[in-house]
Simulated assay, not measured.
Amino acid sequence: MSHTAHIPSHRKPRQRASTTALRAGVAGGVLSTIAVAGAAGPAQAEPVTQTIEMPTITEGLSTAVAASAQATQQVAHDLETQAQQDAAAAKAAKTAKKAKAEAVRKAEAEKKAEAAAKAKAEAEAAERASRTAERTTLSASSGSSGSSGSSASASTTSYSSSATGSAASVVAFAKAQVGDAYVSGGTGPNSWDCSGLVQAAFRSVGVDLPRVSQSQSTAGTQVSLSNLQPGDILYWGGAGSAYHVAVYVGGGQFVGAQNSGTGVVQASLDYDPPSGAVRVL
């Protein structure tokens, strides 16, 4: 053995022929491609279109979003409903307040009207009451109507004592009720108030008079108390505001439903002189 046999050789190891050939072929192909590209001139770049796919929302996330949107809509609906309810409540409160004020005003007006009516009734009652003591003797006076009639005729101007036709029927009806009771609002057949008796007397001959004294005092032609005829309507108070009426029966006498103490009586005009008279027949 040579004395240098154990020393490694410094020569590079030979590459395998196949590897060397492959590398040479690749290099050649690359150079050929570059050469062809250079000869063909610069290539025009084509636009690159790239599609980016968005991540797909999972089924759970979609359900959550839908639920959130529904909840938002429900909250909005609830708020709108509450606002409508608040507006309706405010309107109802305002209406109730206005109605209450109107009711109070109406009640006060009715109270004032009642007070005025009561005051008027009391005044009329007081005026009638001033004659009550004297009227309690009317029944006795009617029993002696002949002498009373003579006295009345002596102190007045030409009262007629004769009655004919419808006037005679009115007088007869009125006299027939003497002794009946006086009842406020009474229209017969056994109890009367003053205007109820007068109305019924004229109705007996087919004449329909108003129901109350005030209207009866203007139902016919105004006549003088010095020129009375049987069947004329006598009234006390003003024409159109009379508080009492009766029927003149002739001879200076009248028949009227006076008050609850005397009932229906026949009495002298001198006892309680009327304010005026109207002639219907």
Rank of each mutant, 00 (worst) to 15 (best):
T4F: 14
T4L: 14
A5L: 11
H6P: 10
H6Y: 09
R14G: 09
R14N: 10
A21E: 09
V26R: 14
G28E: 09
G29V: 11
A35H: 08
A39Y: 15
A45H: 07
P47D: 07
I57A: 13
A64F: 07
A67V: 03
T72G: 08
Q74M: 00
V75W: 04
D78G: 01
Q82Y: 01
D86M: 05
A87H: 10
A93H: 08
K100H: 11
K100M: 07
A107W: 06
E108Y: 06
A109E: 10
E110H: 07
A116V: 14
A117H: 13
A119T: 09
A123F: 11
A123H: 10
A125M: 12
A125T: 13
A126P: 01
R128M: 13
E134A: 12
R135V: 10
G143D: 15
S153N: 15
S158L: 10
Y159V: 10
A168D: 08
V170W: 02
D180V: 04
A181I: 00
V183N: 03
N190K: 14
D193V: 04
S195M: 01
V198T: 15
Q199N: 05
A201C: 06
A201T: 00
A201F: 01
R203C: 00
S204K: 03
D208Q: 10
V212T: 15
Q214Y: 02
Q214L: 00
Q216F: 01
G220E: 01
V223Q: 04
S226E: 11
N227I: 03
P230R: 06
G231R: 08
G231E: 08
G231W: 08
L234S: 01
G237L: 04
G240K: 07
S241F: 05
Y243I: 03
G252T: 01
A257R: 05
Q266V: 07
Q266G: 06
A267C: 01
S268V: 06
L269Y: 07
L269T: 09
L281W: 04
L281C: 05
